[in-house]
Design a binder for these strands. Structure first.
Length: 487
RNA sequence: GGUCCCAUCGUCUAGCGGUUAGGACACCGGCCUCUCACGUCGGUAACGCGGGUUCAAUUCCCGCUGGGAUCGCCA
């Protein structure tokens, strides 16, 4: 049977470095085995999925250079590759489970489930569905559903016994069925949850190996039960360790740049990024640290995966990138620069902002410096970061808070949205706009004098701004507190 | 808290019973050099703890500790 693997991102946000990481291992394994690499879009969350996000993810994955053999854009024999276009398939399969008594209709409301969870929390019981609707007769469920009553379909987990599956990297993993609750398979909007869609699609798309992140281990027994309920053979499971923040928690945008767009914007070459991700949890063998994608494919072996969650270290990534940069010819280097920020396209966006602040052409580059550089020298910004009459700590807190506030406009990173959001935030914090805007200006540009703040922020891009604001906040929060006056 | 996963320098890792525990990033020093960077040479730095098994444990087993994940009509 030919090896078929897949990467299945959910288009609910920015292209994630973890997606590229898992995609890399899927890709290398598939290509090493002469198999196929499939891209499937898991957009079953109607409220959060957006076509913009899907486009951004496809674009970023293309930048990274992992080419998929089948996917929503290129098609293939197992399409459609977008789950939102496969609704009928999931409903049909849910019906099969219903008929077989392996699933049941549940009419409990979100409110009741919320209360249930609250009660369980208070009583210090493990959270989970209490199975109320499982007691309903199938006929009654069918009748109420036919009458148009809103409901979901839940998996009827076996109440006894254990479910075992073999993880390629860890060996057999065993779970007690009684401790796994009845997962929702079909939501009340008729869309499937991940659990159903993933199992159905992996089977229909003839996926042979599910290579995904470790966070999925605990839901795998549910998937195994589903395969069994359908009478299908489950694929082989391979759970890769999770990328981590410096504090060893799962990598997150609060603590690390996580968007592939950030790395592209920082001038990390895609070949560097792939090489570096290949160093996370995997080793080439020998003392080899620098290798190309074809070399990694050639050498690929799951036996060389280590399971400790690797901390993603920007410092080492930058070092590796330097290696790649230095081996470029001058012309190739120049081409990279142009593709990065020195394209006509990018410079043309800077010109209108900067030309009126420039008297001579030789002032242009200095005035544009913060648009073309990475992290700022915060020690040099120093006191300017903190408005008069405000403390370092409170300014740090405010900057950290506005980073979260900007989350709400991530899909609409425009001057107008930035300004509206920032003004509202200032009011809410009881800060003068003047105070807040200056702190933002210095944190984002490193200067007290700059082109208009929101224009600058829009051009810098959300990744760059987020990073600089966070760094400034961390810097301020780490300042030694003023000593209380001596008595 | 329940369940599950994991555990070698600060970080990424090699090691798959017997090694002076190797390499890389970062850090420190030397060399190179007009400076810096690159390069190069050297240095500081790790097997979490306790029991077993064994002639011998970093390596195998168990417990503890520590870290992580997960417990959604998100994926």
């Amino acid at each position: 049977m030919p090896v078929r693997v897949r990467i299945a991102p959910s288009p609910t946000g920015d292209p994630h470095v973890g997606t590229a990481y898992i995609a890399l291992f899927n890709y290398c394994f598939a290509k090493h085995e002469g198999g196929s690499f499939v891209l499937r879009i898991e957009d079953t969350d109607r409220t959060r999925s957006t076509p913009e996000s899907e486009q951004a993810i496809l674009r970023a994955l293309r930048w990274v250079g992992l080419v998929w053999d089948e996917g929503p854009d290129v098609g293939g024999p197992f399409g459609p590759y977008r789950q939102s276009e496969r609704g009928e398939i999931y409903r049909r399969h849910a019906d099969v489970l219903l008929e077989r008594g392996r699933a049941y209709r549940c009419f409990c409301t979100a409110e009741r489930l919320g209360e249930l969870r609250e009660d369980q929390k208070l009583a210090k019981l493990p959270p989970g569905y209490d199975g109320r609707c499982r007691k309903l007769a199938a006929e009654e469920g069918a009748a109420r559903a036919a009458a148009g009553e809103v409901h979901v379909v839940r998996l009827a987990m076996p109440r006894e016994g254990t479910t075992v599956f073999t993880d390629r990297l860890r060996g057999p993993l065993e779970f007690e069925n009684a401790k796994i609750d009845d997962q929702v398979l079909l939501k009340s909007d008729g869309f499937p949850t991940y659990h159903l869609a993933n199992v159905v699609d992996d089977h229909l798309m003839e996926i042979t190996h599910v290579i995904r992140a470790e966070e999925w281990i605990s839901s795998t027994p549910k998937h195994v039960v589903l395969y069994d309920a359908f009478g299908w053979q489950a694929p082989e499971f391979v759970h890769m360790p999770l990328l981590r923040n410096a504090d060893r928690s799962k990598i997150s945008k609060r603590k690390n740049p996580v968007s592939l767009d950030y790395y592209e914007g920082a001038g990390i070459l895609s070949e560097t990024l792939l090489n570096f991700l290949g160093l996370m949890g995997w080793s080439f063998g020998g003392d080899r640290e620098k290798f190309t994608l074809p070399e990694m494919i050639e050498a690929f072996d799951f036996a060389r995966v280590s399971l400790g969650g690797p901390v993603f270290d920007l410092e080492k990534l930058s070092w590796l990138n330097g290696l790649y940069l230095r081996e470029l010819s001058d012309d190739a280097f120049l081409a990279r620069l142009r593709a990065w920020r020195l394209s006509d396209e990018h410079l043309r966006r800077l010109v209108p902002l900067l030309r009126e602040r420039v008297r001579r052409l030789d002032e242009f580059i200095p005035s544009a410096e913060f648009f073309l550089s990475g992290d700022l020298d915060l020690a040099r910004c120093g006191v300017n970061l903190v408005p008069k009459g405000r403390g370092a700590k409170e300014t740090g807190t405010v900057l950290a808070a506005i980073v979260d506030e900007y989350e709400t406009i991530r899909g609409n990173w425009t001057v107008a949205a930035l300004e509206a959001c920032s003004r509202a935030f200032a009011e809410q914090q009881a800060w003068k706009t003047k105070e807040l805007f200056m702190a933002l200006r210095v944190a984002a540009t490193g200067r007290t004098m700059s082109p208009p703040l929101f224009e600058s922020m829009e051009l810098l891009g959300k990744e760059q701004v987020r990073r600089r604001l966070r760094l400034a906040a961390d810097f301020l929060l780490a300042q030694p507190q003023p000593q209380p006056p001596k008595a």
